[in-house]
Amino acid sequence: MSEWKMLTLVGQDKPGIVAKITTALFEAGSQLGEASMMRLGGNFTIMLMVKSEQSVEQLNQSIEPVVKEMQLSSSFQSIEASLHQHEIPDTRITVYGADRPGIVAKATSGLLDAGFNIMDLESDVAGDEANPIYIMHIEGLAVHGSEALERAMEQIKINGVHVDVTPIDVMIG
């Protein structure tokens, strides 16, 4: 079994969450891998790869004092994972428009049908309560090429949503 676990953690944002959690893990002899941590809607969220010989139960115990003190909710799960396996995305898609129900489902279903593999997605609701704007930033692989993708995105544009598909041309030097 892989020694990697995924820590999922969420709680009201306050100073010290990252420092305290990672210190507890370090002191428990864990190694950290790739992570995504961000503030979403006033909450702080963590997805963090943790490599450890300890069991999920032992890992839970090692961060429990911090989790309690900071009123977080967290869980570890064993995952099949390894480092140094980055794939390079070839396409970046920006979608934005007036927020309305189904915008994400429509856009991402269109992408799925066009053979697009999402590797990274960040989205935000901006604007204000009365006029919310949805902004989504996606990177991934256009497995079936960019034409299929452009066609799929035309369908979404019909609804007044702005879609921008840009190739990512990585320069390696």
């Binding site: 140094h84 396996q85 980055h86 390079i88 990512i168 041309d169 990585v170 320069m171 390696i172 030097g173």
Partner: peptide, 13 residues
Amino acid sequence: VGREGCMSVPDYT
């Protein structure tokens, strides 16, 4: 803005 990688920094762009 553009994406870069480097032969001296493997596995990262």
